[in-house]
Write a protein that binds this DNA or RNA. Sequence first.
DNA 1: GTGAAAGCGCTAACAT
DNA 2: ATGTTAGCGCTTTCAC
Lengths: 332, 332
Amino acid sequence: MAITIYDVARDANVSMATVSRVVNGNQNVKPSTRRKVLESIERLGYRPNAVARGLASKKTTTIGVIIPDISTSFYGEVSRGIADIATMYEYNIILSNSDERSERELELLVDHLGKQVDGVIFMSDSVSEEVRQEMSKAPVPIVLAGTIDIEEQFPTVNIDYEQAAYESVVKLIENGHKKIAFITGPLSRDINRVQKKAGYERALKEAGIEINEEYVFEVEDTYDDSYESWKEIQKIEQQPTAFLASNSTLAVGILNGIRDAGYSVPEDYEIICYEHSNLTRIVRPQLTSVVVPLYDIGAVAMRLLTKLMDKEEVESQQINLPYHFAERDSLK
Amino acid sequence: MAITIYDVARDANVSMATVSRVVNGNQNVKPSTRRKVLESIERLGYRPNAVARGLASKKTTTIGVIIPDISTSFYGEVSRGIADIATMYEYNIILSNSDERSERELELLVDHLGKQVDGVIFMSDSVSEEVRQEMSKAPVPIVLAGTIDIEEQFPTVNIDYEQAAYESVVKLIENGHKKIAFITGPLSRDINRVQKKAGYERALKEAGIEINEEYVFEVEDTYDDSYESWKEIQKIEQQPTAFLASNSTLAVGILNGIRDAGYSVPEDYEIICYEHSNLTRIVRPQLTSVVVPLYDIGAVAMRLLTKLMDKEEVESQQINLPYHFAERDSLK
DNA sequence: GTGAAAGCGCTAACAT
DNA sequence: ATGTTAGCGCTTTCAC
């Protein structure tokens, strides 16, 4: 059996309460008794039991993180931002993958809440109705990171994807393009449909360019799917001459499709994309992109959550972080 | 205040013990009472408190995962393997990043153990003496994943990196190379020094090729460092003609260095590497590589941990998974 | 098949 | 400054 607070109390000739006080850094302890207790703790090798502490105090210093897939560079980077700030505020993280299955997200939410987490950071490409309901009933704060909440009901940290798409397409238009394609993951996801596609369309509309649904390529969010999609794109009679890709993986798929077919970027086609990894710098030509501050999205979301858990006032619950363009070689 | 087991008991006119039994699927409950209890649970919206359960039962159904950096593709993939098997066995994961700082690893170990995890999966590039001691004292099983334990003290899941390096270099030798370089992350890490470099040297020795320390390039484990290292390599009077890279990121750094300088792969230089991401398929030419089954390493480690936690017999504590070569275009 | 009761190890009033 | 005590919500003997 492990050493408990009771063993320490007896060894140091004080009460459990006093031991608890020194362990928790309470100032109401005489320096000499503190020393005595610390010595007993050291000698016996006492380690507080966080589970017992959690039950008694109703705080676990643990938060839940529900994420689509930790093995992607996008979510890996966001998670690191979350984790670093969590460490700073001495929270542990329970991390679970949802694969964006709403049903699984629901299970995980219930599961994490059952573990009495003090807060939750939720990531997904859409917030389903059932998930929204469960989150509404949650007894602890929840922050969305890199996740669109069309109802703006929950605290959220993002960039303005719509504006970024708009500005990207404006660049392409300024370079003389009129046949601009948008290659994206599933449009069932709010982030793709309500934000990125909307910005793409706004730029076209503003330039008086007719929106052509044939130029919207909806694929699975994988390199291979994007690579294959090039074959479809080539079949179109009115070939697009420029691409906005909704992430670096898709952009690289198209890029390789183009180059393996013997064409050149940016001479024959220009490409711009959202950047979610260093892939954009690794390929040739390097890709001009919207740099999404993934780490910061995670870090700021976690910081916001700490404030919410501490019941501090927060000015804004819907945070949009700045982004910038990395001008590289896939635009002329 | 949330609904407790006591509320359910009263509502269903049974004792707490009975509620506990139906919640835990104990068969010693009459179907009719079970139904009654289930109905109360449903109506009141009762959710078991896992913290209280953990305190009473001394099992938290949570494991600790200590990982260098979740934002790398290597560890992201391993983690996913761990997480999927953990889900299967209904364990949650507390995930923490150590950045491979031994001091931090120690803190995390103590921290996770304090949270009463039922087991730990530990990843690092070496096992320091202090960490080894703390792990030895741990009251729960610990499994190392993708991590070399030179003392073979702890259960471990890996591939035979030494043999893989050996076979890789043999391929290069068979292609006529005698000046073969090894580009690697810090040699302070056991995995690089004791395994990969050793295999590299064994192949050379066996072929009667003199080992030249000038051909061992030790860099930080980043794309940029590897890319820059090419400039150093070029200064050598006796240029190497082939490379073994200890991971895909370093391989791509060298590859781009070579190509940006106007040389060709595989015509001027050949490259082979350990594959830790799909980068090898994305770059041109695609890289011939040793495919490391990262997901499986995580999955098997977690499966092994479940057996250990259940005190099942396990035949072997040191598991080496199979690997294979992906023959692509960076070798002639 | 079901209930009573004693903890699990700690925190947090409340006394003193 | 320190001690006493009542829980926190559950599991787990042990009776019946």
